[in-house]
Structure formats: C-alpha cells, structure tokens
C-alpha cells in the first residue's frame, strides 16, 4: 500500500460532550477506496469519531471539538460548507431509519433538498441508487409503497441507497448490522465490498468478526483513545499493542 491517496486525514482530534472527553487526540488517515473498520467496546469513542466526520455531532449543543479533520485536503470546519460536506459524506445509521414515506420518496429526499425536481431525473437517480445497493430487483414494482413495509435488511439497504442517491464519496456505517439477521448481514457486507470500488467506506462495528471479514484496515479504539490502526490481517494476527490482543482474543475466546 504505497502511494495511496489520503481521502480523510484526522489530526489531533479531541472531542468532549458536556466537558466529558469522548475522544483524545486521535491521529489517522483513511485512504481512497478502502474499507476502514473501527472496532472497540461500548463508549470507546468509535461512533463519536464517525459522527465528527460529517459534522452530525454539531446537532448536540454539548459537543466540543479540537484538532483538525481534512477531507480532500480541506478542513471540514473551515473550508467545507456543512451541507455540501454531508452530501459528500453519507451516513448509514445503526438501526434502519427509513422515513415513513414511500420507497421512492425516501430515495428522492436528498436530491430534492439539493434542488433536483425533474421527475425523470429523480427516477433515474432512484433506479441507479437502488441497483447499487442491490435492492432494485426486490422493490422495483412497489416503489410507491411505504418504506416501513420492507424487512429490516431491506430497510438498511434502502438507507444505503438513499445515501448513494447523493453521489457521495465517503460513506460512514455506524454498526449497520446490529439489528439484522445473518442473511441480511451478509447481503449488506456484499454490498459494501462492491461499493468499495467507487467509494471510501468507514465501518464502525461491535462485531470484530465483521471487521475482519470486510475491512482492509482496522482501527481499535479504547476509552476514547486510538490504540492501534493497521492492515486487518496484522491487527488480527500480530497486534502491536497488548490491549488490542486482549480485546480481540476476549472476543474470540
């Protein structure tokens, strides 16, 4: 892995909620077209880190932030318009979060807010996004039914498609399979491997095995600290830090 482009650079990132530290001076980079897995126990700062990247943490008034995050070399707080940033950096949440409107309207939500109103253009976007998320065949005949009628796994792929509809460059996954059965999980993982060709993916997961299955590299967080980040294979076979080994073996053992 030489000469890979750094899509995201995180420098000295420290995050506090109401004065309580959630993340302490994290430094790492995410390369273009890779899947970076982020693992660690609950409250280790994984999700906090993820929600900083698309500035969704801004919604919490208790949130404070120090350090620097660059996407495409540009500081997300100083040089990115926050709405442009969020279109560029899509997010899939832990539980499926379709809005209680039709499948079509869920997909069209982002483009519409972005000013796309041509029916034809919207239909193209919807079809393309659903295909990329491997959902098209299952829902093409019922685009105007409520998205709430889909199964959990389908809903989660709908959320992925909804993100894709904005033609993002980075997609953040926040424990996307935590509520799903193994078959649905496998489908999502397949989709992620496919999406990697065109997008940069970050996957926060509680499931170490999942990180091992789909990630190119893995970062291990513990109590707000980035302990170690390396090739997936190295993390799982020869971790440099004893704490990493402890966490992984605890999970395996």
């Amino acid at each position: 892995m030489v000469d890979v482009a750094e899509k995201i650079q995180v420098k000295n990132l420290t995050v506090t909620y109401a004065g309580i530290p959630a993340l302490r001076s994290a430094n790492f980079s995410v390369y273009e077209n890779e899947i970076l897995g982020i693992i660690g126990p609950a409250n280790s700062g994984k999700t906090t880190c993820l929600r900083t990247l698309n500035r969704l943490n801004d919604l919490d008034p208790r949130y404070r932030f120090e350090g620097e995050v660059l996407i495409d070399g540009k500081d997300i707080y100083r040089r990115w318009n926050v709405f442009e940033l969020r279109k560029k950096v899509g997010m899939v949440f832990a539980l499926p979060t379709p809005l209680p409107i039709s499948i079509f309207e869920n997909l069209a939500y982002g483009p519409r807010r972005d000013g796309v109103h041509s029916r034809k253009r919207l239909q193209e976007i919807v079809e393309q996004s659903l295909k990329s998320a491997f959902l098209w065949d299952e829902v093409k005949d019922r685009l105007h039914e409520s998205a709430m009628k889909l199964s959990g796994g389908q809903q989660q792929r709908l959320c992925i498609a909804r993100t894709l509809a904005l033609e993002p460059e980075v997609i953040l996954f926040d424990e996307p399979c935590s509520g799903l059965d193994p078959i649905s999980t496998a489908k999502i993982e397949d989709a992620m491997r496919e999406l990697k060709r065109r997008y940069t993916l970050i996957l926060v997961t509680n499931n170490t095995k999942q990180a091992a299955r789909v990630s190119d590299r893995v970062a291990f967080f513990l109590m707000g600290e980035l302990v170690e980040i390396d090739q997936t294979q190295k993390i799982f076979t020869v971790p440099k830090d004893g704490r990493t080994e402890g966490y992984i073996s605890g999970r395996y053992g």
Partner: peptide, 15 residues
C-alpha cells in the same frame, strides 16, 4: 432519528 437522517442527507435546518 428523522432529523438526523435529514441532516445526514445534506438538508438544511428549515428543510
């Protein structure tokens, strides 16, 4: 979560 989804799709506060 409805609000978070909307913001994560690049919508403004009023949208």
């Amino acid at each position: 979560s409805f609000r978070e989804v909307s913001y994560s799709l690049g919508a403004t506060k009023w949208q």
